[in-house]
Design a protein around this nucleic acid. Structure first.
Lengths: 195, 195
DNA sequence: CGTCTATTTGAATGTACTCAAAAGCGGTGG
DNA sequence: CCACCGCTTTTGAGTACATTCAAATAGACG
C-alpha cells in the first residue's frame, strides 16, 4: 500500500518521525468507491474522514425538493468528510458519492482522537487542515454573496481546472449554486462573447 | 480583569490546570472598540484573534462596488478574526467593526502558537473551535444555495434572537446576502401574512 | 428642531429559475 | 456496425425572486 501521498500531505504542515508515520498509517483503511456509488449516505451514521488518492468524490446535501447541492469535491491529495456528523455524532446530513472510481484512505474519528492524544502534533495538523478549509468556505460564502453566477463560473474554471475536465457540468452548476440550464446559458453567452 | 467568560468558553472543550489558565490569560490584551470604529481594516496587517466579552462586532468584506458583505457577527462568548489574513500573513481581506461599544480580549497569532506549542491541549481547543466554525460556515453555504431569502431570514430570527435586537436591519440583510430594500419587503409580506 | 441614518414603498429591470422539448453523446446489444 | 437507450447538455418561452433607483417616512442623536 502506498501511503506516500498522505504522508507528504501531512509533512507540508507538521513533521513526523518515521515511527510516528508508521503508527499513523496503521490506522488508515484503504477503500475503493466505484463510480456513482456512495461512501456515505445522508441519514447513516458517520465516523470516517476520507483522504482521496485516486479519482474524485463529491459531498452534497439533498434539499426538501430532492435537489442536490454540492458542498465540496475531493480529488487526489484532498480530504473530505461530513464534519458535522462526525463531531456531533448525529446522522449524516451529507451524501458522499464517487464521480469517478475512487480510492480513499479512511480514518475513523475514534482513531483520529487516539492518534491526536498520543501524538499532539496531529491536533496541530488537523487544526491547520480545518483552518484552511474554513478560510476556503468563508471565501466561497463571500463570493456567492458578491459575484454573479457567470463570475463564479469563470473563477471556478481558473481555480479548479482539474475538476472542469473530470466533473459533469450539472455537478459544477450544483457546486456554483445554479441550475444546469442556467449554466448552459452562461456558457453559450461566453462562447458568443469570445467569438 | 475578568477572564471568567473566556476560561469557561475553553473549559467547555478542554480542561486546564489553574497554572495553565494563568499562563494563558497573561497573553490576552483587553481592548475596547467604540461603536462604528474598526478593530481591523481590510488591507492592514492582521495578527490578532478577538474574543468578545461585551457588545457586538461584525466582520465583512467590501466588494468592487463598495458593497459590504457581512461574514460574521460576534457577541459575548464568541471568537472573531480574519483567519485568512492570520494564517497566510497577507493583508486583511475583512474589516472588523463594532456594532455596539465592545470589549474584546486579543490574542496574537505568535502568542497563540507559543501557547499551543507549550500546552498542546490548546491545539486541540483551537482545532475544535475551528471545526465548529467550519460546520457553521458549510451549513450557511448550503442554506444560501437551497433556501429563499425569506426562509433564511426566518431561520436567522430563530437562530440568533440576540442579534435581531442588537443589529440594524441593513446589517442583517447584508449577512443574509440580500439588499436592505428587499429585506424590508420580506418583512412587510410577513407582517401582512400573519395578520 | 434639524440633520443624519435607517427603514419603507413603488416602479422598472435584471438575474436566475421552471418547465418542456430537442439535440448530443456514450455505451450496449442485436 | 448501427439502432436504441439513458443520461447530459442545450434551447426557448414564460415566470419568480431579487435588485436598482428614486423618493417618502420614520427614528435617533446632538
Amino acid at each position: 500500500m502506498n501511503f506516500d501521498l498522505i504522508l507528504r500531505n501531512i509533512a507540508r504542515h507538521v513533521s513526523l518521525t518515521e515511527s510516528e508515520q508508521n503508527y499513523f498509517v496503521q490506522h488508515l483503511r484503504p477503500f475503493t468507491v466505484r463510480k456513482k456509488t456512495q461512501l456515505l449516505k445522508a441519514g447513516d451514521s458517520c465516523v470516517d474522514t476520507a483522504f482521496v488518492t485516486r479519482g474524485c468524490l463529491k459531498a452534497f446535501s439533498v434539499d426538501k425538493d430532492g435537489e442536490e447541492h454540492i458542498l465540496s469535491f475531493a480529488v487526489p491529495d484532498w480530504w473530505i468528510a461530513d464534519l458535522y456528523a462526525i463531531i456531533s455524532g448525529a446522522p449524516a446530513i451529507l451524501t458522499i458519492e464517487a464521480v469517478q472510481d475512487t480510492d480513499v484512505l479512511l480514518l475513523s474519528r475514534t482513531d483520529q482522537e487516539k492518534i491526536c492524544n498520543e501524538i499532539p502534533r496531529f491536533d496541530k495538523f488537523f487544526r491547520i487542515l480545518v483552518e484552511k478549509n474554513l478560510v476556503a468556505s468563508q471565501q466561497r460564502l463571500i463570493n456567492n454573496m458578491s459575484m454573479t453566477a457567470e463570475e463564479r463560473y469563470i473563477q471556478f474554471l481558473g481555480k479548479y481546472p482539474m475538476l472542469t475536465e473530470l466533473v459533469p457540468l450539472h455537478n459544477i452548476a450544483s457546486y456554483l449554486g445554479i441550475t444546469p440550464e442556467f449554466l448552459s446559458k452562461i456558457r453559450a453567452r461566453m462562447a458568443k462573447g469570445s467569438r
